[in-house]
Design a protein around this nucleic acid. Sequence first.
DNA 1: CGAAAGGTTGAGTGCCATCAACGGCGGTGG
DNA 2: CCACCGCCGTTGATGGCACTCAACCTTTCG
Lengths: 262, 262
Amino acid sequence: MAYNIRSRETDRARSAVPALPLPRPAYYDFWLECRSKVVASIVHKDEDVIVAGSGHASLYINHDGWLFRYRILHNGRRQIVDFILPGEMFGLQACLFDRSLYSVVALTDASLSAIPFGVIDEVFDRNRKVSRDLFWSAVCEAAILGEHLIDTGRRSAYERIGHFMLELFVRLQRTDRTDGLSFEMPLTQELIGDSLGLTAVHVNRTLRALREKKMIALNDRRVSLLNFDALCRVCDFQKSYLGEQAFCRSSLASSKRFERQL
Amino acid sequence: MAYNIRSRETDRARSAVPALPLPRPAYYDFWLECRSKVVASIVHKDEDVIVAGSGHASLYINHDGWLFRYRILHNGRRQIVDFILPGEMFGLQACLFDRSLYSVVALTDASLSAIPFGVIDEVFDRNRKVSRDLFWSAVCEAAILGEHLIDTGRRSAYERIGHFMLELFVRLQRTDRTDGLSFEMPLTQELIGDSLGLTAVHVNRTLRALREKKMIALNDRRVSLLNFDALCRVCDFQKSYLGEQAFCRSSLASSKRFERQL
DNA sequence: CGAAAGGTTGAGTGCCATCAACGGCGGTGG
DNA sequence: CCACCGCCGTTGATGGCACTCAACCTTTCG
């Protein structure tokens, strides 16, 4: 928990590759554990990190940028599976399969720590706490994807976009990247659409509806949630969901929650 | 790999709680590892195993039935997140969160092994191979959910249902529950719809279209794939996808694939 | 300054939801 | 045994949400 205090310092050191980069306790431990093997790197906007169909043998911790994971179908449509926000890890699946199922590309400039895949194995041999952390973080990842599935499966465009904004807010808040009830969002309407299974045009209309209903405001690249509670209600956003998930993604159930169950 | 041979025997012993129940190598090891703590149980059709919103402290291995994980939204709609086929594990997420995000209910009679949650911790302390297996299986689970996300996000009803059938086939084939290119499927059209974000009525029409195009045949509860390759092409079913995933879910990347990367 | 990218708005279309009715089938109780 | 009911599958009619195509504007950037 104490690590959370670091997030502000990390923020300030954003331009360089940070020396103590991890706002997340579990990843921080993980990062410490394999520090000697870590390769720091910086990627620029629109730069590919992982290309679908090719092999890959590193996983990454994203310190301060936005990236996203996507796939192109044979009819040319693109589905964005997940946005990778500051402080999140990615690349595990690319390691698991011979050839990655998805591509990962940088949406903004970002500084990454690349961790050779084999290090995971060493960690499992050496540090039980960290291996448990990794395990639970993977379980949590699956839970988040399950929630996105519900999004695209059973919600209207209006609910999807509202839910999407709420989720971004909660996830960003964890690393102190929100300001009151607003946050910066470097996404185009096309990206939002490709993430939620909508077209850019329809995202545009729906955003207008959300503005007209005084649910959100948009200035430049900044989103403000004008009526948090109402939006939660309309979009079926369970506070328990990301409230809990946020907890998970931060402590990764390795601490109190986990011990309590024993 | 040798464990696969067991699947036929397991099949025959289906009526009782099996003594050596696991067709999956990784879960088999896991099951062996915590055998003394396992509680065998049988659930009947329509019986709840996990209820959304309540706490839970066991995970389960499903030996021979069909179950599914779902959530009800406030507008009354239901989204099925995943079907749990014979030989698959579930309940991890319910353990991770204070209160489960999803409900799990039996679709047919099924025999389960309940494993107390705390055992996982012991396993992580004791057996590195099994803990790695568990980790990779969780990563793989996330990959499968990602694929479902693409399903509901960017595919037409026709493609979704075709893709769904192909995936079921491949997953069932792994535990030898297919017969040539056909398999038994105890699902109603409503369940299929709730899984793919469609209405039962539209599932009906789409199934008819698939029949008329000679892609599939339906008799009783049995699905036959009449033109496997064409269906793969139309539905953008990547053989690499579940080909790989099937591999994962079976060996859980603990063996050759994993070692090779080191 | 021109080109490219992103945002905005309108008109028309189509896929899929909704509502509704009906038939088959199995279970159940009189 | 049969009437009744509920579940499931099937089909038709209708409507709406979101897609498609297209035009235009603003901003950014080479």
